[in-house]
């Protein structure tokens, strides 16, 4: 055990040392081999200028090389490879054409997952953004708002599995006549209702209870970003509207919302991406039982089911990727626009 900790620390040291050595070493080599005092056509001023130019041309790539290598190996190559694997069988060796896609669209579990993912996509970003906006607006005007924001932000730090344990305890069910230790059932009982085994209530409601967990986590994120955007609204705008006799509700809907709309869109898309990849919560709470399956969990299932099916797993991954692409393009266009105004 101590050996393992020591191993990790040594790795940090070796890793950092290797990075430093690489960056320092390659720079040193570059300066040496192409330096003005280096070998080559010494004394010839034109050649030296040429070498100088060459050095400035090479150096950025030395700085970039390790990052490009890791991103290439761990992100870009896999995207291409996953796409290739969708056309192959479970071992990735025999070409099957569109067989995996045909399988997917006829598979009831896959259809179920697509349907559930759509529900997640509609409900979670909407609720998280709405709650985030409400908290951001409310907290700005109350003296203990900062504490409130901290507490609502806190779930952001908790892992999806940790959150699943927390909420599984909230949803706990002990049989109809027993004393309930899950707070949801206790509340239901208090109002004279019948305790429920929440996780088995099909259709929809058990999925909805899983979505609540993600809303609980993501609201803090929405709140922080929207709160910053609200503070960026010029005071004069609101002042002017108030002098014109606009009601608070109208100021909120006609001035605040339009002003921060671009930010709302950013929050929305960011949460959308989290939702598309949602996996841990479903795995820990139901593992896709009782019609709660989602794409990422189904893919995980196929990665290991019966020794793993690379073709089908990849096909499901591609479906997630396709859903992300519009957001990706939009992000890149926004970034390019900003680049232009810099």
């Amino acid at each position: 055990m101590w050996l393992q900790i020591a191993g990790a620390l040594v790795t940090v040291v070796i890793g950092v040392a290797a990075c430093v050595l690489y960056f320092w070493g390659t720079n040193w080599v570059l300066d040496r081999t192409l330096g003005t005092s280096g070998a080559g056509a010494a004394g010839d001023g034109v050649a030296t200028a040429g070498q100088d130019k060459l050095r400035t041309r090479i150096r950025p790539w030395l700085f970039l090389a390790p990052a490009l290598f890791f991103m290439g190996l761990y992100l870009i190559y896999p995207v291409v490879e996953t796409l290739r694997l969708t056309f192959f069988d479970r071992f990735g060796t025999n070409y099957v054409g569109f067989g995996n896609y045909i399988w997917a669209f006829n598979d009831p579990q896959f259809q179920q997952s697509i349907f559930n993912n759509l529900l997640w996509l509609i409900i979670v970003p909407t609720l998280a953004t709405a709650f985030g906006l409400i908290v951001a607006v409310l907290a700005d005007r109350i003296w203990w708002g900062q504490v409130a924001k901290s507490l609502i932000f806190m779930p952001m730090a908790i892992s999806f599995v940790g959150a699943s344990v927390i909420w599984k305890f909230v949803y706990d069910y002990r049989g109809t006549n027993a004393d309930q230790i899950g707070i949801l059932n206790a509340i239901v009982q208090m109002f004279g209702g019948e305790p429920q085994a929440w996780m088995t209530i099909t259709p929809f409601w058990n999925s909805f209870l899983l979505m609540i967990i993600l809303v609980w986590i993501q609201t803090g994120f929405a709140m922080v970003i929207l709160s910053a955007a609200l503070r960026g609204i010029p005071e004069e705008t609101i002042e002017a509207a108030r002098i014109d006799g606009a009601s608070d509700i109208r100021i909120f809907f006609d001035i605040m919302i339009p002003q921060i709309f671009p930010t709302i869109l950013v929050v929305w898309t960011t949460i959308t991406i989290v939702v598309l990849k949602i996996f841990d919560i479903v795995l820990a709470m139901t593992n896709g039982q009782w019609d709660t399956q989602v794409l990422a969990n189904l893919m995980f299932d196929w990665m290991f089911r019966g020794g793993g099916d690379a073709g089908r797993g990849s096909t499901i991954a591609i479906c997630i990727m396709i859903a992300v692409i519009p957001i990706m393009i939009w992000n890149i266009r926004q970034a390019n626009k900003e680049e232009g105004t810099r």
Partner: peptide, 21 residues
């Protein structure tokens, strides 16, 4: 820069099977 902004949102799921292999 555009590539990096694009890679920001690539789902992890895309990388799992090729890397495992």
């Amino acid at each position: 820069v555009a590539l990096i902004v694009g890679l920001l949102v690539v789902p992890l799921q895309m990388s799992l099977i090729p890397l495992l292999r």
